[in-house]
């Protein structure tokens, strides 16, 4: 029970106790602050997108998944890392239930890398933790992601799209090595860890 008070009678606070001009001014200021924050966030995204060539990877390129192993760029002898004339490296990988081919890919640090993947059967995922590399590998299309590794070392490469009962065992890795070490070997062969 409430205690009896000797203060003047108190009732519920009426609506509109905050002056209307204060409410209107506050709302306008809040809208300006929100708009400024949104503009700042968009500016950050757009500017870093331009300066760092950072944008969602998108590549629409069809391929026949039933003939991957017979002809075209995804035949077995062409899989792995290949050095292009401009010094960049293109890595070609096939994803199939339940493995990536090749299972380990060697690439140089500090070099423009283009990953090109194709699926031979169902939808798979291509993800390199601790990097922003992340894409789906949809059968019938070539998935392409461009990046540049700053840190040397081993990157796990799990399939991150459920692809069947063996999905949990479908993973490979990318080994990022110094440029010099990579350059010594690429003139004669496609690079995968099997050649180590």
């Amino acid at each position: 029970m409430a205690e009896q008070s000797s203060d003047p009678p108190r009732g519920p606070l009426p609506d509109g106790i905050v002056p209307e001009d204060v409410v209107a001014r506050t709302e306008k200021r809040w809208i300006v602050i929100m708009a400024a924050m949104l503009v700042a966030m968009l500016a950050v995204v757009v500017l870093t997108g331009i300066t760092d060539a950072m944008h969602p990877s998108s590549n629409v390129e069809v391929i026949d998944p039933t003939t991957l192993h017979l002809r075209g760029e995804f035949v077995e002898s062409n899989l792995g890392a290949a050095v292009e004339p401009d010094g960049s490296v293109t890595v070609r990988i096939i994803a199939a239930q339940y493995e990536f081919v090749p299972r380990c890919i060697q690439v140089p640090a500090g070099t423009a890398i283009t990953f090109r993947l194709a699926s031979a059967d169902v939808v798979h995922g291509f993800l390199l933790p601790d990097t922003n590399v992340n894409t789906m590998v949809v059968p019938g299309f070539v998935a392409e992601v461009r990046t540049r590794f700053v840190r040397q070392g081993e990157y796990a490469m799990p399939c991150h799209e459920f692809c069947g009962l063996g999905h949990h065992a479908m993973w490979a890795h990318v080994s990022v090595v110094p440029k010099e070490r990579f350059a010594n070997r690429t003139s004669v062969e496609r690079m995968s860890c099997a050649a180590q």
Binding site: A53, T131, V133
Partner: peptide, 9 residues
């Protein structure tokens, strides 16, 4: 966190 993970395109 995001930027140090490297650019993608």
């Amino acid at each position: 966190v995001f930027m140090p993970r490297g650019s993608i395109g």
